[in-house]
């Protein structure tokens, strides 16, 4: 079975974010970048399917040169080869422009299953996988918490999370795009031999021209939803901040809990 996983490299969410001078994105200088949390679960799920049913796992990403480290991480976990959409024209795209580029890069590969995370932690649009499914004419299921493939019937049975913690159990034909929810599995750590092997696994660089796309169809130019500006959220309440040494803060809070909140 041929399986593809789309991953994104995102800044560590515990960082301090400052807004870039053009206000359209963050200032990325000095930030640490990591694999999007949701995508780690997607990579793990893909590798588990390969281990069970045989086949190949292709990992795809879009981003600047630095994102090779995230591809290498997926390869070290057990993916077989990488595709890097590596062209300045791809950058700054919305979910549609990104999905278009990713879908084009997989058109010739014809994977039976494409995994993505439910959403990215930075842009958080939760759309890329589902749009890819439409562009490729694939079936899809989103927010998936369980996957069972029946290769002989070319079917997959999945659970997807709905409101109140209930799950829909559904059956889909292949090929399919599945957007993976956190907690579906326990992503493995790359082993030392895995990390060594990953260095030798192939990564193909792909440009906009290689995909036969015009630069105006991808990146910011190809976006259907444009980010005008980033904002710092307005606060709902101005929290009363308690400060001082831990012992001191604890005392202050207990007084509030007794006198104002009246829970003690």
């Amino acid at each position: 079975m041929k399986i593809a996983v789309c991953v994104k490299e995102v800044p560590d969410m515990e960082s301090h974010f400052s807004i870039a001078p053009d206000r359209k994105w963050i200032d990325e200088s000095g930030l640490q970048f990591v694999m999007n949390d949701f995508d780690e679960f997607a990579v793990e799920e893909a590798i588990r399917l390969k281990e069970k049913h045989g086949g190949e796992v292709i990992v795809v990403t879009l981003g600047p040169e630095r994102v090779k480290q995230t591809l290498r991480k997926a390869l070290a976990m057990g993916a077989d080869r990488g595709i890097h959409l590596n062209d300045a024209a791809f950058l700054g795209g919305d979910a549609y422009a990104t999905a278009l580029a990713l879908a084009k890069s997989l058109e010739g590969e014809k994977p039976e299953i494409i995994f993505t995370g439910v959403q990215t932690e930075d842009d958080a649009s939760s759309q890329v996988g589902v749009i890819m499914a439409e562009l490729l004419g694939y079936s899809h299921a989103s927010v998936v918490t369980k996957v069972e493939v029946d290769p002989s019937r070319k079917m997959v049975k999945v659970h997807r999370e709905i409101e109140g913690g209930d799950h829909q159990v559904l059956e889909s034909s292949l090929p399919v795009v599945l957007t993976i929810q956190t907690g579906i599995n326990e992503p493995r750590y790359a082993s030392l031999p895995g990390i060594m092997q990953a260095k030798k696994k192939p990564i193909k660089n792909v440009s906009v021209a290689d995909l036969g796309l015009s630069p105006s169809a991808v990146g910011y130019a190809g976006s259907l939803v444009q980010t005008v500006e980033l904002l710092v959220p307005k606060v709902e309440h101005h929290a009363q901040m308690l400060s001082g040494a831990p012992q001191e803060v604890a005392k202050q809070l207990v007084i509030k809990l007794k006198e104002e909140v009246k829970v003690l």
């Binding site: 439409e134 927010v143 259907l224």
Partner: peptide
Amino acid sequence: SSSVGIDAAPRLAAMFHTGLASN
């Protein structure tokens, strides 16, 4: 922004080749 919205809206918007602002 629900299990239906996240599942159907991106696909429908893509059918019309128009944008979806999420959440």
